[in-house]
Amino acid sequence: MHNIDNNIYMNEKPSDKEQMELRRALIKSHTEMPDVEKEWERFRQTIIDDSDEETMNTSRRHLYRWVAGVAAAVILAIVCVIPSRKTTSVEVFSAKADAMDIVISTDGGEKKVVKDEKILAFVPAKKSTVLRRTIKMMEVSTPRGKDCHMTLPDGTKVWLNADSKIAFPEEFVGKERKVDVSGEAYFEVTKDTQHPFIVQTEYFTTTVHGTSFNVCAYSAKEAYVALVSGSVAVKTNDGSEEFIVPGQMASLTEGADMSIKNVDIYPLIQWKEGFFYFERDRLVDIMMELGRWYNVNIVFEHEADMNRQLHFVAEHSDSLKDIVRRLNDLGIAKFKLNKDIISIE
């Protein structure tokens, strides 16, 4: 072995074994960026090696390997401290255990399950009969996956969408004809200027004399009245009232104020003809409607997909598998059906 001065020794490089030890030391501390100069200085102070030319040439080659090893350790440290990107799932609609038939009930506790009737007709009782007894309240409820067409005692026609309810008296008496609705219903009201027809929901009250309109009140975010013909007055729970004309929609804003806008009525009422009809609607709204009809959970893996807009038309009679296949054909996202869950990835 030869003694060499510090200037020459600064160019000496570590052996393979020494490189391995240095890499191990660096990897153990990978949560911090390695200080290359500090590590080399510490390493230099511990090395004694030959100073002949062959050893010097070998050491140069070792330096290149050592630098590569340090670079690898730096990359490893960076990879280890970068947090992984997590996907946040959002469930926008939930399936529920529900009866699969239309049910007619009264406030007296009577119930009737409707399986086959296409149109329900409620014939008004004779006046003499009404005077002798208390008028019962009737309620018709639809499960998810079924709608219903009925005629009320005054002749008004009602289409009740899936997962909806309507309550009304078995005979309209007094100065007004009043019904309560939750969910969605389409009305063709029998004209009677002396007895206004009133539709009460959790979010607003609609007053008409003879007209056609659609009421949706599944939730505050979905609550609206869309007018097909005639004229209606829509009043919110805080007393604000607006009149709308055919082709207009009155809906609630996030602050529970009323907003009036012109809309294309056609897509809004195709459900009563047995169709899903969406015209540049948000994907989240489309999937919630499909979830309600097929009674399945709807989960978005990426929130950004919820606001995608698209045109989509299908029939209520289509199978859920066929619906999912057709959505996948659009190529906007990946739709997966697993038992009672549709996930959008």
Results as ranks from 00 to 15, higher is better:
residue 4 I to R: 07
residue 5 D to Q: 06
residue 11 N to Y: 13
residue 16 D to Q: 14
residue 18 E to S: 13
residue 24 R to T: 12
residue 24 R to F: 10
residue 27 I to N: 06
residue 27 I to L: 15
residue 27 I to V: 15
residue 28 K to D: 09
residue 31 T to W: 09
residue 34 P to H: 04
residue 34 P to N: 01
residue 36 V to Q: 11
residue 43 F to C: 12
residue 47 I to K: 15
residue 48 I to A: 07
residue 52 D to N: 12
residue 57 N to F: 08
residue 59 S to T: 00
residue 67 V to P: 00
residue 67 V to H: 06
residue 69 G to C: 03
residue 69 G to H: 01
residue 72 A to E: 01
residue 76 L to A: 06
residue 77 A to G: 12
residue 82 I to W: 02
residue 84 S to W: 03
residue 88 T to V: 12
residue 89 S to N: 03
residue 92 V to H: 03
residue 96 K to N: 00
residue 101 D to R: 08
residue 102 I to N: 11
residue 103 V to E: 03
residue 106 T to F: 05
residue 106 T to K: 05
residue 109 G to P: 11
residue 109 G to T: 04
residue 112 K to H: 10
residue 118 K to P: 04
residue 120 L to E: 04
residue 124 P to C: 10
residue 125 A to L: 08
residue 126 K to H: 09
residue 134 T to Q: 06
residue 140 V to G: 12
residue 141 S to I: 12
residue 142 T to P: 04
residue 144 R to F: 00
residue 146 K to H: 04
residue 146 K to T: 08
residue 148 C to N: 10
residue 149 H to K: 15
residue 151 T to I: 15
residue 160 L to M: 10
residue 173 V to S: 14
residue 175 K to N: 14
residue 177 R to H: 10
residue 183 G to Y: 04
residue 183 G to W: 09
residue 191 K to F: 05
residue 192 D to L: 05
residue 196 P to Q: 07
residue 199 V to W: 07
residue 200 Q to S: 14
residue 202 E to Y: 10
residue 203 Y to Q: 14
residue 208 V to F: 11
residue 211 T to K: 12
residue 218 Y to G: 15
residue 221 K to W: 07
residue 221 K to D: 15
residue 229 S to R: 14
residue 231 S to D: 11
residue 232 V to T: 09
residue 233 A to T: 15
residue 242 E to C: 04
residue 244 I to C: 08
residue 247 G to V: 01
residue 247 G to Y: 03
residue 259 S to N: 15
residue 259 S to M: 15
residue 261 K to L: 12
residue 263 V to A: 11
residue 263 V to E: 07
residue 264 D to K: 10
residue 269 I to K: 08
residue 270 Q to F: 05
residue 273 E to A: 04
residue 274 G to D: 07
residue 274 G to Y: 09
residue 275 F to E: 07
residue 276 F to I: 02
residue 279 E to F: 10
residue 283 L to Q: 00
residue 283 L to E: 05
residue 283 L to T: 04
residue 287 M to F: 00
residue 288 M to C: 10
residue 288 M to Y: 00
residue 292 R to D: 07
residue 292 R to W: 01
residue 293 W to I: 01
residue 293 W to D: 01
residue 295 N to S: 08
residue 295 N to Y: 01
residue 298 I to T: 05
residue 299 V to N: 00
residue 302 H to F: 08
residue 303 E to H: 13
residue 305 D to P: 02
residue 307 N to H: 11
residue 309 Q to G: 08
residue 310 L to F: 01
residue 313 V to I: 14
residue 314 A to C: 13
residue 317 S to K: 11
residue 319 S to L: 07
residue 319 S to C: 09
residue 323 I to S: 02
residue 327 L to C: 06
residue 328 N to K: 06
residue 328 N to H: 01
residue 331 G to D: 02
residue 332 I to L: 06
residue 344 I to M: 08
residue 344 I to G: 03
